[in-house]
């Protein structure tokens, strides 16, 4: 029974990782009651922090929670959210206008200010400043995506093939990310997450076959497997982007910049990995022979475990 405890702890740890993809986000809803007068409402969840971040409204507005009065000028100008990044990953400001229009803006620590215009359209540089870091952050925090990319890197044997494979993965996940965000298709989130976990396990199996010298299709045309599973990972990115919130008037540009952020993060990961491999070659620091299959088995085990735990979530209907 004694061996059971470490195992339990280990499983506990990994289960946490499987769920830990939610970063605390605060939501501020502003509903216009009369022209220029809004009701404010905070929704936030965080295990450790009680207070929401403090918003600073345009100078002509008076804010006395929960009432925001901007007079006849209306809610135009700059809105700043201090302390972002320290406590909250991001804050979403949702504005329900009197005419039934709804706008949502995402503020982050790197970009704590938005400029509100009468039409609701954000300047392009503000969208870029908000969504590139969000995309970057999402891929770097998404261990499942990174593991999959690592698996792909193992399958390819030449630089040209690596470029092709990574491009295929990029194109594929961009396609589905766009399709979901623009509302062309909808997929339930939980099965997607489970399938993403399964894709890691499958790639691990392929890598193992390839390493053993067995002929496998995925090593001959790794870009095909990258494209196929890339479609799947795009659904995952879309789920995250929907949760973050998109400014209604700026959906295409926000989508583009989020994707740019994802690609930058992915590129950074690939480059660091390549640099490390090169460095080990230069310093003639070869790892022991058993370490390679061990890593691949580990990767497959993690993928399988995530798959099972996410499947379990679906089955119990959580």
């Amino acid at each position: 029974m004694r061996w059971f405890l470490p195992l339990l702890l280990f499983m506990q740890l990994w289960t946490q990782t499987a769920f830990a993809h939610n970063t605390p986000i605060a939501l501020l809803t502003l509903s216009e009651r009369q022209v220029g007068v809004f009701d404010a409402d905070w929704t936030y969840s965080s295990s450790t922090i009680v207070n929401p971040p403090a918003p600073t409204f345009p100078a002509h507005c008076t804010f006395d929670y929960p009432r925001l009065n901007c007079g006849e000028t209306g809610l135009v100008g700059t809105l700043t959210m201090e302390q972002l990044g320290e406590r909250y990953s991001a804050a979403v400001v949702q504005i329900h206008w009197q005419d039934g229009r709804t706008d949502a803006y995402t503020l982050t620590g790197a970009n704590p200010t938005i400029t509100l215009t009468p039409t609701g359209k954000l300047p392009l540089d503000q969208v870029a400043a908000a969504y590139i870091p969000l995309g970057f952050e999402h891929i770097l925090l998404g261990v499942d995506h990174l593991l999959f990319v690592l698996g792909l890197m193992w399958l390819v044997s030449s630089t040209a093939m690596l470029v092709k494979t990574i491009t295929a993965f990029t194109i594929a996940h961009s396609l589905t990310l766009a399709a979901v965000t623009l509302g062309w298709i909808g997929v339930p989130e939980q099965p997607v997450n489970a399938a993403i976990a399964l894709s890691i396990a499958i790639v691990a199996v392929e890598v193992l076959k390839h390493q053993r010298g067995e002929r496998c299709l995925s090593a001959d045309i790794p870009w095909a497997i990258a494209f196929g599973f890339g479609l799947l990972h795009g659904f995952g990115f879309a789920g995250a982007l929907t949760k973050i919130g998109l400014p209604q008037e700026n959906v295409p540009s926000a989508l583009l910049f989020f994707n740019v952020g994802v690609e930058l993060g992915q590129l950074a990961f690939v480059l660091v990995m390549l640099a490390l491999v090169w460095s080990h070659k230069v310093l003639q620091a070869q790892l022991p022979a058993w370490s390679r299959p061990a890593t691949i088995y580990g990767m497959g085990a993690i993928g399988s475990f995530w798959f099972l735990s996410r499947l379990h979530l679906i089955l119990i209907g959580a």
Binding site: V272, L276, S279, H280, V282, L283
Partner: peptide
């Protein structure tokens, strides 16, 4: 690990 590996390899090379 990353800083040490990449930088020392680059310097060595």
């Amino acid at each position: 690990y990353i800083v040490m590996t990449i930088t020392s390899a680059a310097a060595n090379w």
